[in-house]
Design a protein around this nucleic acid. Sequence first.
DNA 1: AAGCTTGTTCCGGCCATTCG
DNA 2: CGAATGGCCGGAACAAGCTT
Length: 294
Amino acid sequence: MRRSKAEIEAIRAAIYDYCQRHYPLTVRQLFYALTVLHLINKTEGEYKQTVCRLAKDMRLQGELPWHWLVDNTRWMRKPISYGSLADCVEQSARTYRRSLWQNRQEYVEVWLEKDALSGVLYDVTQDYDVPLMVTRGYPSLSYLRSAAEAMVATGKPVTIYYFGDYDPSGADISRNVEERLQEFMREVAREWTLSNEGERVFAPSLNFHRVAVNEWQIDDWNLPTRPTKTSDSRAAKFGSRSVELDAIPPDDLRELVRMHLSQHVDAYELAAAEETDRMERQTLQAMAAKLRAG
DNA sequence: AAGCTTGTTCCGGCCATTCG
DNA sequence: CGAATGGCCGGAACAAGCTT
């Protein structure tokens, strides 16, 4: 698409504005935000030629602070190491947390289709010490299988809160995740029973909740829709309206997660756990001081 | 009926070519 | 000549529709 300088300028301004208000963001997240603002079309071309390019130029020219945009997909590997034993304990004293779930009789996870929103959901899931599972589109079989193993290993009933787009593939992904997890949990339980010399391993129950985006939410929450891609082979059995998960404002999304997780851990328990953590961190701090002294 | 192709989801970037 | 386009890289999947 050919745009005038003024149009490009408007998009640049919107990029700056949105990033400033919501950083850290991924480029993908920024892309969806601009589509919701109707500044660009939701196509891979616009993503690459418009958003990626402008974001690149603006950062290289110093117009956009580097830390406003992040890339979660590339990572670094290195063994964990410390300057000394005291440093190790010191580090633990800063980060230590006691598991909120170890002594509970249920197991909860949050699942998410798109990595771009992982930062938003993690703000809440970390408070509740709940795993945030990101599939990045269709999940790999390896990912689902190891997730199923972790669930069986807990031996507790599982609740999953799922977040994904309302579009043909998005609906299919959550169906696939639920079915595969069910299948793999039964399989894992069977295998573990056989290798366990008579002690039977049970597949826990799975309560799978697709929290968003669901059809009823489009009108109830007045979400901006996109025409469903007719080229999607799943489009025929799907409605004409599609909605990005990004169409739900970040604050509302966080509230939605909090609403569900707080059904399992109430505010009182959360506060009590924080207090325990504080005290145990102090103990670690004292240990670190002793190590330094002696 | 099995197997392949095409198109879709997620993520981010670079570069050669084409268009106005 | 600058801006837009298209293709490529890497990596994981699934379904519909064609082709053998």
